[in-house]
Computed example of a mutant assay.
Amino acid sequence: MSYTHFWKPFWSYHIQSTEHWVGEMSKKGYTLTHFQPKLSRFTFSEEASPHETFAISFDRSKQHPLPKALEADGWEVVNKKRKWAVYGNTKQKDEVKTSIVRDNLESRNSKISMFWWAYFLYMIFSISLQASLLIPLYLSNDSFTVTRVESPMWILTYFMAAVQMGVTIIGIYSLIALKKESRRLSEEVTQSQLLEDSTDKPVTLSGERRTKFKVGWMYAPDKIETWLEEKEQSGWHLIHVNKGGVKFQFERSDKNLYAYSVLFEGRADRNAHAFHSEAGWERVYVSGSSWQQWSIWRQAYSEEMEKPEINDDLESKQRAAMSVAKIYTLMFSPIIVLFGFNFFSFMLPNALEQGYFSLSGIERFNTTIFPLAMSVFLISILRAWAYYFRVRS
């Protein structure tokens, strides 16, 4: 029996395409006999496959359990290798009623995205630190001499530069591919629920619209909840939130009672979203990030009813608020340190020595904008911690 080998780099970033490709190979008379996930190597034998539909899953436990409902629907394990498994079904895709769970796969993709974001943040921080040391020297009125020293290991230097460039390109590709893959996996399970008409309480709209901008509401989610509820009570119904989460569009309506809830999730969790929807909550916004996701939910209620809460567990609320405070502290603190080092070491002494208005235009701009930027980031951190202490009290 002859075997055919294929190398498919980044196949795990395109799960559905890989599944379709395995299915097409099956139609051509090839059966998947072996695959090496880490090496992106797939091996097929030239024999007819009984399966028509394929699915690939990722399981950290390496057990790959198959629920009875999936077995009854015709699913079986075709091939598995450590955390990865390929499932096959003898039915056509449109005849299959169940699907393989993707939760672990999404978690794995989110961790890879976080790794690449950390890499790029490190690169930005490193470049910014070097720039903060060189720019003041360049802008200084003092004369200096630059001496270029040829490296005795110039081959190694160029090689490492090429490697870093290659890694950066792979990182950019990975982030783009994983973002698209996250969108495809989301669409696979459920259609978008953004701003569907509420089934709890009909809303009569007048056509008169108003737009409001809210920047930085993530640092104080409880306040945006109160603001949105007050808008509903004053006769303005939320109909759209832009992808960036800063532009809120309202339309004039009857005065209604709506409970709003803003949720922060460490990573995208479609199961939790489905649970909230089944409980009668309507999702009106979800951020695009899969590893730091924000969502806004609402539910109509009447004066005779108690105001609903999407989560009445105080301990879990406190954990979520602590996560918000920690994440923004870790994100913004290095920026404050970098800007502060640059400002207090170079800009401020220079301004005090020469006088603010004696500086060049770019020096005056930097001397003004750096403390403003530090203040904005510091205020954001303080707002996040203030939110935590409000939840804890």
Rank of each mutant, 00 (worst) to 15 (best):
356 Y>G: 06
376 V>F: 12
237 H>F: 13
302 S>E: 03
108 R>G: 01
223 K>V: 04
16 Q>C: 00
251 E>P: 13
183 R>H: 11
107 S>G: 06
265 E>V: 08
183 R>M: 15
63 Q>P: 01
214 K>T: 14
392 R>A: 07
224 I>L: 12
190 T>N: 01
381 I>K: 06
219 Y>A: 12
305 M>R: 05
341 F>C: 14
37 P>V: 07
249 Q>F: 00
13 Y>C: 09
77 V>Q: 04
151 S>E: 15
120 F>W: 11
44 F>Y: 10
60 R>T: 13
24 E>L: 10
126 S>P: 00
215 V>Q: 13
383 R>Y: 11
322 M>V: 12
361 G>Y: 07
49 S>Y: 06
99 S>L: 03
58 F>M: 13
243 K>G: 08
55 A>C: 03
304 E>H: 06
116 W>K: 00
182 S>N: 09
332 F>I: 04
110 S>A: 12
121 L>D: 12
252 R>A: 08
73 D>N: 10
14 H>W: 10
271 N>A: 01
125 F>G: 14
297 W>P: 00
382 L>N: 12
151 S>P: 07
374 M>L: 02
27 K>R: 14
300 A>E: 07
365 F>T: 11
68 K>E: 14
382 L>T: 07
385 W>N: 00
277 S>W: 00
203 V>Q: 06
92 Q>F: 14
339 F>E: 03
24 E>I: 08
294 W>P: 05
173 Y>S: 03
59 D>Y: 04
44 F>Q: 10
242 N>A: 11
205 L>P: 05
389 F>K: 11
364 R>K: 15
243 K>T: 07
249 Q>V: 09
314 L>N: 02
230 E>Y: 05
73 D>A: 05
229 E>D: 07
243 K>S: 15
48 A>V: 06
197 D>Q: 13
282 E>M: 13
106 E>G: 07
112 I>A: 02
272 A>T: 03
36 Q>R: 07
141 N>V: 12
22 V>R: 02
70 L>H: 05
379 I>F: 11
114 M>V: 03
32 L>F: 04
186 S>H: 00
156 L>F: 03
46 E>K: 14
201 K>G: 08
153 M>I: 14
258 Y>R: 08
145 T>D: 08
123 M>C: 09
377 F>Y: 10
208 E>L: 02
188 E>K: 06
321 A>R: 04
274 A>R: 00
72 A>Y: 02
105 L>D: 07
104 N>L: 01
100 I>M: 09
107 S>E: 11
222 D>M: 08
62 K>S: 15
61 S>C: 05
160 M>D: 05
392 R>I: 02
102 R>C: 02
358 S>F: 13
110 S>D: 09
81 K>P: 03
37 P>G: 07
216 G>K: 13
258 Y>F: 11
264 F>G: 12
280 G>V: 06
164 Q>R: 02
321 A>T: 06
48 A>S: 14
343 F>R: 01
288 G>A: 09
80 K>P: 01
4 T>P: 01
70 L>I: 00
256 N>Q: 10
379 I>A: 10
193 Q>G: 06
61 S>R: 03
97 K>E: 08
227 W>D: 05
341 F>Y: 12
160 M>T: 15
49 S>A: 11
195 L>V: 12
252 R>P: 03
108 R>W: 08
87 Y>G: 05
53 T>R: 12
314 L>I: 03
335 I>R: 00
69 A>Q: 04
132 S>R: 02
238 L>Y: 07
375 S>F: 09
269 D>L: 12
320 A>E: 09
45 S>D: 13
47 E>D: 01
45 S>P: 14
72 A>G: 01
